[in-house]
Design a protein around this nucleic acid. Structure first.
Lengths: 220, 220
DNA sequence: CTTGCTATTGATCGTGCGATCAATAAGATT
DNA sequence: AATCTTATTGATCGCACGATCAATAGCAAG
């Protein structure tokens, strides 16, 4: 099989090595949750000694917190990219819900759960978690407010609606980790509730047509 | 301070000792979450050797799963007892939401989070978690259906409403663990959403009068 | 008082954790 | 080619985990 002994790691610039370690921690977190992010697991993933990982980090508490932020921020950027092509706030919201709830994202959900759980005992992590929750709130709020501007949505308090959506997504995603009900049912529950909250006709937030409205790409 | 050496534990009947261990695990879980439920921590809590705890359990996986069930079932029984005295479904629902979200239950919330998280890797725990989720669904569904019967609530699908409520409670409680917003705001978000979903007038689910309608106790 | 049953213990094994530090060797500089 | 800088390592510490097992000691029955 694979060789039992690890060759000495190539010498790299501190910046490059630090980036590798961050990436390794990222991967480990997606595979095993934040609890799995340990000196040894990250070192093995990067192909390096645990001592080197320790050398690049003040302590594991901050590596875990930073990794949480990286994982969640990356996911948010990805989702933002997915919904961006849709032209109307309604379609964007539908795509957002569909993406979040119905396209297996258990790995990121597990990271969120660990963040809330571990955050009780790690101040840096708790701060990171609150920061990402605010970022998500900001993203969703933008869509809701846009819909209110165009008149598509009817909501007296967009802030509350955004929070409502995220609260349900968080709760139902957590439930999904132990296979409670199926993704489609979870999606329907959320779309129904949101259509209600936004004064939309039933079905308005059902899965958007798979091909997003094409945004003509500017010539490079 | 306290003596450094532990006296030999008194000899007890297996049933009694097993009950002590269950109780010890229960306490440990409430204090530190399911991750803290370990051979050594439970043994220390009970005042006994780790080996004895191991002796009474097939392995830690099942003790953790059983402890989860015990903690959550106890909480549900407590909540059921709190809302029972209220006479109308509306008051019962208001009391339920108020109790769940606005009276610090971070300890039990942490146990839920650990259940979802650890449940990914422990089959017995995952089963236990699903079982308790069903139990909660049953409790809430009873209240919602009662309200529909009396005509207080207008809901086409009580199942969905119950799930909606629990999904939000789970999500917002998790958020609360890292001090995201305050309990009152979380409660308001839920009551507003549910009043909407149940066709209730605004404010109908606001915190019930603190003194529940007295149920005449039967003479013993 | 002696005997038998068994609840309880102490010792121990192997694993994985975070962390530290002197020693090493790869690459850049001269 | 010799020298310097520093990225990387190996060794090690102390701790906590789950698990196992022969030895011990408390209690009840005889």
């Amino acid at each position: 099989m694979s060789r039992a002994v690890r060759p000495r790691a190539a010498r790299k610039s501190p910046e490059e090595r630090a980036a590798e370690i961050r990436a390794g921690a990222h991967d480990v977190a997606l595979e095993g949750g934040l609890w799995a992010v340990t000196l040894r697991s990250v070192a093995a993933r990067v192909g390096v000694t645990p001592a080197l990982v320790a050398h690049y980090q003040p302590n594991m508490e901050v590596l875990v917190a930073d990794t949480f932020t990286a994982v969640v921020a990356a996911e948010m950027a990805e989702v933002a990219g997915i919904i961006e092509p849709y032209s109307s706030p309604t379609d964007r919201l539908a795509a957002l819900i569909h993406t979040l709830v119905e396209t297996g994202r258990d790995d990121v959900t597990a990271v969120w759960l660990d963040g809330w759980s571990l955050g009780r005992r790690s101040a840096p992590l708790a701060t990171a978690v609150r920061g990402q929750m605010d970022a998500w709130q900001h993203l969703v709020l933008g869509v809701v407010e846009a819909g209110c501007s165009t008149g598509e949505f009817t909501a007296s308090d967009p802030q509350t609606v955004a929070w409502h959506l995220l609260g349900m997504v968080d709760g139902l995603s957590a439930q999904g980790l132990v296979s409670y009900r199926d993704p489609a049912a979870r999606g329907r529950l959320i779309t129904d509730a949101l259509e209600h909250a936004l004064g939309l006709p039933a079905g308005a937030l059902a899965s958007p047509e798979s091909a997003p409205a094409p945004t003509p790409a500017p010539a490079p």
